[in-house]
């Protein structure tokens, strides 16, 4: 049952990265859109993400619940030492979620829209930035439970070049996912080309940030290269991602939107797989070289048993409904385009 729980945990993180990420990306793209295209971009994006908007963010809650029920030591260690980035991320989540809803549901359209937009766009940037920082800090070996000063215990645990560059990398990935996703939702060729340009831009940005991550890891003394390339799974995953990237650029010219989406999702999954595989089952690495492991630092057997059952039962209800939701709105959207 432990493995069931771990698979759910990993899947929830992946789906949050993919779906929540595309969602954050929509705001990031807005940030990089010129004034004159802004309202059209916004319309297209809203139509694409509106219906599944709430559901996208449920993955984060599932992740947190699995952590605090199943792996309380991991949850509390991260909560204590990454308190500050978590708080900033939470503020980002509040600001973003409410601004998104407000701008759509405000009955009067006036200058307030401008404020909602600003909040939405900036929080769409900050939230994934800090999500990336938090994830990177967990494995960066900077968390020090024995720290004696405030700075060491609560600041340097997350404020370092490696974590910050992973944060930016996360932002670019989100932007990339969103651009690719929206290509398939556009209604005109002009729009389509605009979003393809955005996807290319984000792809290059991701590449640069990815390189920065490696450089930062080198200076922080984190053996990232060894983690990624030091095992077969890592190498295969990276190779697959690279191949898919080539295919991606090739297909992009042909405008096969459905496959592009799958490829983009595939690349991101491979990145997550590479980075998590090497660590498995240790998901928090401490300064003293110790680990918090999904195997050893888990809740009692009965808890894991019950949690696994709850997740299995839950997914019997959730997955078909979610798939049907996405399917119906995709179908309706393409019907609309046909007419």
């Amino acid at each position: 049952m432990l493995y069931v729980v771990i698979i759910f945990l990993w899947t929830a993180i992946l789906l949050y990265l993919l779906m929540g990420g595309a969602d954050f990306g929509a705001g990031i793209i807005e940030l990089f859109t010129s004034e004159k295209n802004l309202s059209r971009t916004r319309k297209t994006m809203y139509r694409a993400i509106g219906p599944i908007w709430e559901a996208n963010h449920m993955w984060l809650i599932i992740t947190i619940v699995i952590l605090f029920v199943g792996f309380p030591d991991i949850y509390t260690t991260m909560s204590v030492h990454l308190h500050i980035p978590l708080t900033i991320m939470l503020i980002g989540i509040i600001a973003r979620g409410t601004a998104f809803t407000f701008r759509h549901y405000d009955a009067v359209v006036d200058d307030m829209q401008h404020i909602y937009n600003k909040i939405f766009v900036y929080s769409s940037f900050i939230t994934p930035l800090f999500l990336g920082i938090i994830a990177a800090s967990a494995v960066s070996g900077k968390i020090n439970p024995a720290a004696t000063t405030f700075l060491e215990a609560y600041i340097f645990s997350w404020l370092n070049w490696f974590s910050v560059s992973v944060g930016f990398f996360t932002v670019t990935i989100c932007g990339f996912l969103a651009a690719v996703y929206i290509i398939g939702e556009t209604e005109s060729d002009l729009e389509k080309h605009r979003f393809m340009r955005k996807a290319r831009f984000m792809n290059i940005a991701a590449f640069i940030c990815g390189a920065l991550v490696f450089i930062a890891a080198y200076f922080e003394g984190i053996p990232l290269i060894e983690w990624v390339f030091g095992n077969t799974v890592g190498i295969i995953a990276i190779a697959a991602a690279t191949v898919s990237l080539v295919v991606f650029w090739y297909l992009q010219k042909k405008g096969k939107t459905r496959i592009l989406r799958i490829l983009a999702g595939f690349q991101v999954s491979m990145i997550l797989l590479t980075t998590s595989y090497r660590h498995f089952p240790n998901i928090v690495i401490l300064k003293n070289g110790g680990y918090l492991s999904l195997m050893e630092h888990r809740g009692h057997d009965k808890t894991i048993e019950a949690l696994g059952m709850a997740l299995l039962i839950g997914s019997v209800f959730i997955l078909p409904a979610l798939v049907y939701l996405i399917y119906s709105f995709q179908k309706k959207a393409s019907d609309n385009i046909m007419h």
Binding site: M58, I61, I62, V65, I66, F68, V69, G70, P72, Y75, T76, G299, H300, T303, A306, L307, A310, L311, I313, G314, F317, I318
Partner: peptide
């Protein structure tokens, strides 16, 4: 967490 977490995991659903 591991003791009173059951309702939270169902609540997630």
């Amino acid at each position: 967490g591991p003791i009173f977490g059951m309702p939270f995991s169902l609540e997630g659903t």
